[in-house]
């Protein structure tokens, strides 16, 4: 089992979301950075949808009371254990009694901690994701708190073999890591590809031009539900009311004040604001790692290009999964001493 010594700013259990209930208004939730979540799982031999811990800006301090194989992917939240810095994107073996400690964000915003076997929480409507506002899913429907105890399911054959390696240091890391091809290129100023939103042609010509020319800053009122963007105000050609209809992760909607909102994992299922753009799924992990104050620009692509990029990403992830399965025994070694 694992005990939470310090919970961090916002640490929740997430998976790939509560899919299939949007027609009843149940939000999807799930990992903000889908790729980091999936790669972390694949690196420890899990299915890519197994529950992970999503940590935000300031990470937790976690005491492992049993041997475990873990992986940390996504933003760099300064993870250490037994006095050494822990690498990202790589399987890590921790011995019973080890405390994995995260600090502030050195790069990005969100990190994902997968454990071989997957965090063991009850599924609600088919998903382990935490839905904070409704108080369901994850660990008791809420963010982790000091004193919480989480367990994980029995690891698969591969990770069990890795765990059976002879006694060694408190912490050891694999000699290999996830290929750079599958790691998103996180930055604090990014270009993200968008398609036209369903109401793009409701906007004034100069607003549509500004949407693609200006840089937008992520506002302080930004969370798992969505990011408020600061930049040129975007205006409709004429006041016009939209009847509520479905929105999705990556939807860029514009309320009457003209300041766009980029909807993220905990968005509502429907909305009544005009949608000027839609960030493509392949680029959402980059958005998930933005912090308030970071900037983004929008670059327009077609639906065909968006789907081509997504298929390429899925192929890369399949190759990673196959490579891990074929890896066999791990030659564990000491992580470099932290300087």
């Amino acid at each position: 089992m694992m005990r939470v010594l310090r919970p961090g700013l916002l640490t929740t259990v997430q998976d790939l979301g509560r899919v299939g209930h949007q027609r009843h208004g149940v939000i999807v939730s799930g990992a903000m950075d889908e790729v980091a979540h999936r790669v972390a799982n694949l690196l420890v031999g899990n299915e890519d949808h197994a529950p992970t811990l999503e940590m935000t800006l300031v990470g937790p301090s976690l005491a492992f009371d049993a041997d475990a194989v873990i992986a940390i992917c996504g933003g760099d939240l300064s993870a250490t254990a037994a006095g050494v810095r822990l690498p990202l994107w790589r399987p890590i073996r921790v011995r019973a009694g080890t405390v994995v400690e995260f600090g502030g964000a050195r790069a990005g915003c969100r990190a994902y901690l997968a454990v071989a076997g997957g965090w063991d929480v009850p599924l609600v409507l088919g998903s382990a994701s935490t839905y904070l506002r409704a108080g369901i899913g994850g660990h008791d429907g809420r963010a982790l708190a000091a004193g919480d105890v989480l367990t994980w399911r029995t690891p698969g054959a591969l990770a069990s073999q890795w765990l059976a390696a002879p006694e060694g240091d408190a912490v050891a890391v694999a000699s290999w890591s996830a290929s750079h091809r599958v790691r998103p290129r996180y930055r604090g100023d990014i270009a993200v590809r968008v398609m036209d939103g369903p109401q793009a042609d409701w906007f004034r010509e100069e607003s549509r031009a500004a949407f693609f020319e200006a840089a937008f800053t992520v506002g302080s009122q930004s969370d798992r539900m969505g990011y408020r963007l600061q930049g040129p105000a975007l205006a409709l050609t004429a006041p016009r009311e939209l009847l509520s209809e479905a929105v999705t992760m990556g939807t860029v909607q514009v309320p009457p004040d003209g300041n766009p909102i980029l909807l993220m994992a905990d968005r509502q299922t429907t909305g009544g604001y005009a949608k000027i753009g839609q960030v493509i799924r392949a680029d959402l992990p980059l958005v998930a790692q933005l912090k308030p104050g970071d900037t983004l620009r929008f670059v327009r692509v077609s639906v065909a290009e968006a789907q081509r990029l997504l298929r390429r990403r899925e192929r890369d992830l399949r190759e990673l999964a196959a490579a891990v399965r074929g890896m066999g025994a791990i030659n564990w070694r000491s992580p470099a001493r932290a300087g």
């Binding site: 899919v19 299939g20 949007q22 027609r23 009847l243 209809e245 479905a246 999705t248 997504l310 899925e314």
Partner: peptide, 17 residues
Amino acid sequence: VELVPAFTTVTVFYDPM
């Protein structure tokens, strides 16, 4: 994958793979 009926629309979520 799933659908969301609304006042005047049906939004259909699908698997682009």
